[in-house]
Nucleic acid binder design. Structure first.
Lengths: 95, 95
DNA sequence: GACGAGTGTAACCTAGAACGTTACGGGTCA
DNA sequence: TGACCCGTAACGTTCTAGGTTACACTCGTC
């Protein structure tokens, strides 16, 4: 179980991909084949990395699509876990 | 890169959780706190495992929510990768 | 054969995410 | 001032997750 808030994948894209290459949001969006708005939303944490976007990132930046999507999964899961106590679920097979 | 079609998480829930415990879909849905329709859709591959559902499964069956959601991620990614060739994306940082 | 349980699923709803285009206002800098 | 980049608001479409209700099917069992 992770203790701290995992960073949104958008931050990682910005700091590890765009900034080192000196890319603007407009340039990167064009390269990825999505609108500037779509990329902007991801970079600012207002949208998630979809499976298709993960593949796009892997093509553009040469990393694995799995790693991109896993980052999003961890981020989503961390927020879902915060509401674990609010879920009314019966234990069927106690550990 | 996975070669073969990964199984949908619904199949795993059915064969590894419901059947060993002799649970009906109706019983399991009630325990999970979702409608019978919702669980049925997941079991038959017509819906995915959401982050919240992954937490529900982890409570009911004592496994980690991460493992449930990762299975869904791998499934989604496999299908997204099949369309990799159709995406028009420029390579920005060739490996 | 009749009946109830379990199941799949169709029809309807809401909410939200992921896309798109267009357009506007605020920076920064030559 | 003008050019460029950025965030974002407003509008749209499409898809997914979730709900309720209702129907038809397949089983056992009585």
């Amino acid at each position: 179980m992770r203790m701290h808030n995992p960073p949104h994948p958008g931050e990682i894209i910005k700091t590890l991909c765009l900034e080192p290459l000196g890319l603007t949001v407009t340039q990167a969006a064009a390269a990825l084949g999505v609108s500037r708005k779509t990329l902007s939303a991801i970079l600012n944490g207002r949208a998630g990395v979809s499976p298709e976007m993960a593949v796009r990132l892997s093509i553009a930046f040469g990393t694995s699509s799995e790693s991109w999507l896993n980052q999003q999964t961890q981020y989503d899961l961390w927020h879902a876990e915060r509401r674990r106590k609010q879920l009314r679920v019966a234990k069927l097979a106690p550990a």
